[in-house]
Amino acid sequence: MQSLSNRSKQVSQKEMTFMESIYLPAIIGGLMITIRHFFAKKITIRYPEIKKLFSKNWRGVHVLKKDEQGRERCTACGLCALSCPAEAITMEAAERKKGEENLYREEKYAARYEINMLRCIFCGLCEEACPKEAIFLTNEELAPSRMDRGELIFGKDKLVEKQHDPDNKKRGGGPLEERLFHSKENSSYKSTFEGISNS
């Protein structure tokens, strides 16, 4: 079979020659390899100062989006809960009252919307299923850790988008890099990232 890396070597068990059996040339060869790495460019990313980019299809913690006028998009149709393979999503629907038009876009809205982060597998099927483009896994937070199980059931207080951003229609907006990179622009960090993705 053709090897994938073209670096495979045929193993042979023939007698070692004298030069091989004194091992020293092989050891010196090994030392040369390691000293090359000693002076090679280091790939360490110094994390708190330099943050690595999130990938284009990064799936973080869920965000319940609002529309251009700051109204919640979710109508509590339940398709996300239905599509969820881990059964992590539950919700309770309620009817919009008079005077709440500036809070909820549709006449029906989710009074309670909870995602159990212990169950969620971050597959993104809820995002696919949503007909109203209301739920996205764009929050650039890793799977959260808490001291208490109860704290890991995220309600609307944690999920709903904090303030309305008119450009942020679907998965943010603007050029991809700006959306996915952490807020602080850092050119050295960017070059590090490119160096890694190119190598």
Binding site: T34, H37, K42, I43, T44, R46
Partner: peptide
């Protein structure tokens, strides 16, 4: 530190 450098890392810093 040297172990880090040999393994293309930075070591304790």
């Amino acid at each position: 530190k040297i172990a880090g450098f040999f393994q293309d890392r930075l070591g304790p810093d």
